[in-house]
Nucleic acid binder design. Structure first.
Length: 194
DNA sequence: AGTGAGATGGCCT
DNA sequence: GGCCATCTCACTA
């Protein structure tokens, strides 16, 4: 049995965690009791109080962003555009409400009998819909398998195989919209299409 | 291929 | 009341 990544993995700085999460395995035990697994292939870093694109910019603390102020390793899930959920993993500490948005997954092949075709996990809203991840998964401890949502280790992706670009959908964030905080695996076919 | 609009609701000022 | 860390579908060509 592979263990879940320990909580202190998420205490590192947010860009480090973002890059390190590429290639790691996101796991989810769904309501039918089956475990879904997929490699993380695209993420974005949100750098807290100094990042205009981040929900905690300027130290904003609201009901929605409550989980952002938990210790690293918790989930932060919110509803966007009234119909899609987005999954984030909180980093650092409550003093630094930062997080990594999981933008795309590459499903790990399953036995043909169980495989669902055309699994759409190439976008933050799509992957949550496909895995049935909602607000009830907000604030979970992702270093514990018993949470039903966790991350397992996998070999690190070489820096040369990681592309960094400005983040998607944050044009309103002025100069922060240009920061190259979107990271994805070069040439991976499951990257979201902006 | 590329553009544009609509869905849809919680959150924030 | 306006704004979204999105996605899909319908339309033009």
């Amino acid at each position: 049995m592979t263990k879940a990544l320990p909580q202190d993995f998420y205490f590192q700085d947010t860009v480090t965690v973002s890059r390190a999460l590429l290639g790691k395995i996101l796991c989810h035990k769904n309501e039918d009791g089956e475990t879904l697994r997929a490699s993380i292939v695209e993420v974005e870093a949100y750098l807290g109080v100094k990042d205009k694109a981040c929900h905690t910019f300027g130290g904003r603390q609201t009901p929605r962003t409550r989980s952002m102020y938990l210790e690293g390793g918790h989930s932060y899930i919110y509803l966007i555009y009234g119909m899609y959920h987005c999954l984030n993993i909180v980093t650092r500490t409550s003093e630094h409400p930062e997080a990594v948005l999981i933008r795309a997954l590459e499903p790990i092949p399953r036995p043909a009998s169980l495989a669902k075709k055309n699994l759409k996990t190439n976008g933050p809203g799509k992957l949550c819909r496909e895995w049935n991840i909602t607000k009830k998964h907000d604030g979970l401890a992702l270093w514990k398998k018993q949470s039903g949502l966790w991350v397992e280790d996998a070999p690190a992706i070489p820096a040369a195989a990681i592309v960094s670009r400005p983040r998607i959908g944050v044009d309103y964030a002025a100069e922060a919209a240009l920061w190259p905080l979107r990271f994805y695996m070069k040439d991976n076919p499951f990257i979201s299409k902006p």
